[in-house]
Design a protein around this nucleic acid. Structure first.
Length: 263
DNA sequence: ATGTCATCGCGTCGATGA
């Protein structure tokens, strides 16, 4: 089973690219971020025609996540649960789907972690608080001892080798020690990272800025990740990045990342 | 670390977010 994640940077702008990629890559489950659309406007018909069930958690203009799945959804949960009762999450950044496979239950999350810049505004503490909530949620889910995959745009550069020039990223919310530590804490719960399970190569990127010729210069960063619970990691077979998609007409600034598990 | 892009609001561009 192939599970992919892709920040498409707007479903309206990326519709044709998404359809083409689904045809070529044939993921069983595709987690999308930044659909930038309300649920009613998400173009489900053509995607459903390709054999996918579609569940979205959208909002107007910004954010928005979705899961496309060949397997039917047994359960869908929208929004990362609150830690504080007054901490109402109005930003659509989290959706969980539950599926039944031959090997049993499979849980997949599509998440879009807050960017956190500029760091001297309320955006950075919001990012860190969101990561704390994600860690608490994950800790609870791990008690179920089920295959669980957290896929999405984490807006975190885990290590210096995950960017072209670490000095440039010094102080940025994507590379701040607090962000990296929070990501590491999540991994240390027992979640393993799909791409780093198959390669330790530097310059393994998932995002290239639209600006300053970042793509032709390969000035990229690795911020899209798939984290696997121990039960999912046991079934893990391979992972890769669909880098070629960045060369298409009207590309997203992110490319798809995928993992395959024997289920 | 800016050679950009997507979205919205009502406007043919500016603000905003990334």
């Amino acid at each position: 089973m192939k599970i992919a994640t892709w920040n498409i940077n707007g479903i309206k702008a990326r519709h044709d690219n998404l359809i083409e990629w689904l045809r070529q890559a044939e993921p069983d489950i595709a987690c999308l971020q930044e659909i930038k659309s309300v649920d009613e406007n998400f173009p489900r018909d053509e995607i459903e025609a390709l054999g996918y069930n579609v569940e979205t958690h959208g909002q107007k203009s910004f954010n928005g996540v979705a899961i496309l799945s060949r397997l039917p959804f047994d359960e869908v949960n929208r929004g990362l649960p609150f830690v504080q009762p007054d901490d109402e999450d109005i930003q659509a950044r989290f959706i969980e789907g539950v599926f039944s496979t031959d090997k049993g239950v499979l849980r997949v999350v599509s998440l879009y972690l807050p960017n956190g810049n500029p760091v001297d505004t309320e955006k950075f503490p919001y990012k860190l608080a969101w990561m704390e909530r994600l860690e608490a949620w994950t800790r609870q889910r791990l008690e179920l001892e089920e295959p669980l995959i957290l896929a999405g745009d984490y807006n975190v550069i885990p290590m210096p080798e995950d960017c072209h020039d670490p000095e440039v990223w010094e102080g940025d919310a994507l590379f701040r020690p607090e962000s990296r530590t929070a990501f590491r804490r999540l991994c240390n719960l027992g979640m393993s990272e799909a791409i780093r399970s198959v390669t330790d190569q530097p310059e393994t990127y998932t995002f290239w800025d639209y600006q300053a010729g970042a793509w032709p210069k390969n000035n990229g960063i690795r911020i899209d990740h798939l984290l696997l619970s121990p039960e999912a990691a046991k079934m893990f077979t391979c992972a890769d990045i669909d880098k070629h998609v960045r060369d298409w007409e009207k590309p997203s600034d992110h490319v798809p990342v995928w993992a395959e598990i024997a289920a």
